[in-house]
């Protein structure tokens, strides 16, 4: 059953909403027919600004192993500076996909044997009408574009539901705009 599981690790800072973003993707994945979905936050002594992470396992079958992902297929990084603070690239599977919220171009990241996708989610989400620093809806657009696992329409519905009382339309717009502006170093093929 392990081979069929897609292991996605989300890295952010306390308060950035990495867990909410992963939860939205989990719900969308379930809607899209992945009956096995588990979003497993790693809890430390959280505080605003400190590095946090959450494991998201997606499969067509029920997930029985709820241990944290050790070597993810996909790493989603909500703050590019975390690449210097956590062993994100080292732990990524060989041939894995790294998705980063960064103002830098994709050419600024040179890691052997991994696929890279970048978007300046912080700026794009702000342009879409969200207050500066709200990025957890936008990053979902980058995830959709870079991974090709889930359709943007399904994710948009999940965003509208999750953010029903917190600027739903602007959060959805941030994700769509980020989707369009996500740049990869491997074309737009499915991973």
């Amino acid at each position: 059953m392990k081979e069929n599981t897609i292991n996605i690790m989300w890295y952010g800072r306390g308060g950035q909403g990495a867990i909410t973003a992963a939860k939205v993707v989990a719900k969308a994945a379930f809607q899209a027919g992945y009956t096995g979905v588990a979003m497993i936050p790693s809890f430390g002594t959280e505080r605003r600004g400190a590095p946090v992470s959450t494991s998201l396992k997606v499969s067509k079958q029920k997930i029985y192993d709820l241990s944290p992902i050790e070597n993810p297929d996909i790493a989603v990084v909500l703050d590019h500076l975390l690449l210097e603070e956590m062993p994100i690239v080292e732990e990524l599977q060989k041939g894995g996909l790294l998705i980063v919220n960064t103002p830098k171009p994709v050419s600024a990241y040179k890691y052997n044997g991994i696929k890279i996708a970048v978007a300046d989610v912080t700026a794009i989400a702000n342009e879409a009408g969200l207050p500066y620093g709200i990025i957890n809806s936008g990053i979902i657009g980058a995830f959709a574009k870079a991974s090709g696992i889930l359709k943007m329409e399904v994710l948009k519905e999940a965003i509208l539901e999750e953010f029903a009382f917190r600027r739903p339309e602007k959060n959805a717009a941030a994700a769509l705009l980020t989707y369009e502006r996500t740049i990869t170093n491997y074309g737009n093929k499915k991973v």
Binding site: A26, V37, I40, P41, F43, I63, L66
Partner: peptide, 10 residues
Amino acid sequence: GYILSHTYMP
């Protein structure tokens, strides 16, 4: 605790 209490699953 956490493993089930805080994990999201269907």
